[in-house]
Design a protein around this nucleic acid. Structure first.
Lengths: 192, 192
DNA sequence: CGGTCTCTTGACGGAGTTCAAAGCTAGTGG
DNA sequence: CCACTAGCTTTGAACTCCGTCAAGAGACCG
């Protein structure tokens, strides 16, 4: 951990940088403190930024035509969050992102992300590898939604986000699993 | 289209290369011709390679504990396919990949992929951007499995893979949508 | 301590599954 | 080129899991 630039050391853990590089990195991130309930992204916002989660918890959710919420992702420490579809194409968000436990996040814009990749190529490699892992995790989630019952998906969820029950409302978890809060309640009853 | 190296021009469409770079690229890919029914990857194989689809059609599927098949991905022209989870970590495949229409694919190993990224950094950038698109597409698929009925998912599927009905068995599509072949049959009946 | 948000419980309904059988279709060999 | 067969698709009937609606119990916060 480099005391001069804890942000760079935290976000790109394992990489080492020159002082000049630390400078380049630090200049591109902005710290944002969020209170529970605050919104980071609203539907229809143009998405210029992505966010690295230092602490706290956020969730990305989608509201369908019938008004129902569907949680696509939770983000806890060391996760990145944004509406990636909108971010990658700098277009309008289809999702909302809200803070569900007081959080500190580091914001970086799309432009600055691309600049960083050019200025410090090992960051592009680092992020690519991280994305490969996320990619694999997504594939796993699709598999689980195809092949598992609600009860099994709930078990998998507890493994993916250990200890998250303490931070997150059950109806948020239900909307992540693709079931209703009532069904989750019945599943939880069977568990004990 | 560079006549000296059609493979590089096809796979990295839009990028231009020096003759030396064309050489580097061509040396890393190997063309494989597949007949319908051939398997590219079996469960438990160590996955060293990924494949760029030049023509034909393949599918990646998972067999769950009860023996049921679940199609995770179809790949047609200009898609990449492999068991990405296993490929990124050079570990054992959980999925099977089979050819469902005679195909020509270009194979590249994990090592050669990494070498290519180092030797020609713009390829790393190119692939990263492509992956960002896939990432967004995955997110969309998760959303659709959470928020849409089987009938709506079938419509989305037809948009994602236009014209694929001609190549693919209905029970493969059903297993991609997460429903039974019987249910898909009933849905299709309503459509006409 | 009162009000609102969250979780639980019950009764009913519907989308999709399962199992079984019949109808098609495409590929193979005579 | 036709006939046969194996694989694929359709159809029907009963069943199951989960959703919906509604009401009550509990928890948290000012």
């Amino acid at each position: 951990m480099n005391i001069d630039n804890p942000i760079a050391s935290e976000i790109f853990e394992g990489l080492s940088f020159t002082n000049q590089e630390y400078h380049l990195i630090a200049a591109k991130f902005e710290q944002i403190n969020l209170k529970k309930g605050e919104m980071l992204i609203h539907t229809k916002d143009i998405v210029y930024n992505q966010y690295y989660v230092h602490s706290g918890c956020l969730r990305a959710y989608f509201i369908d035509d019938s008004g129902k919420e569907h949680t696509v992702q939770f983000a806890i420490k060391d996760w990145w969050i944004t509406d990636f579809t909108a971010f990658f194409t700098t277009s309008k968000a289809l999702m909302n992102i809200e803070c569900i436990q007081d959080a500190i996040v580091y914001k970086i814009s799309q432009n600055n992300t691309e600049h960083l990749y050019v200025e410090i190529p090992k960051i592009e490699t680092y992020i690519r590898k991280k994305m490969e892992k996320r990619f694999a995790a997504f594939q796993k989630r699709i598999l689980s939604s195809l092949s598992q019952s609600a009860k099994e998906r709930y078990k998998s969820f507890l493994n993916t986000y250990p200890g998250i029950e303490r931070n997150v409302k059950n109806y948020h978890i239900a909307s992540y699993l693709g079931i209703t809060a009532e069904s989750l309640s019945r599943i939880r009853k069977e568990f004990t």
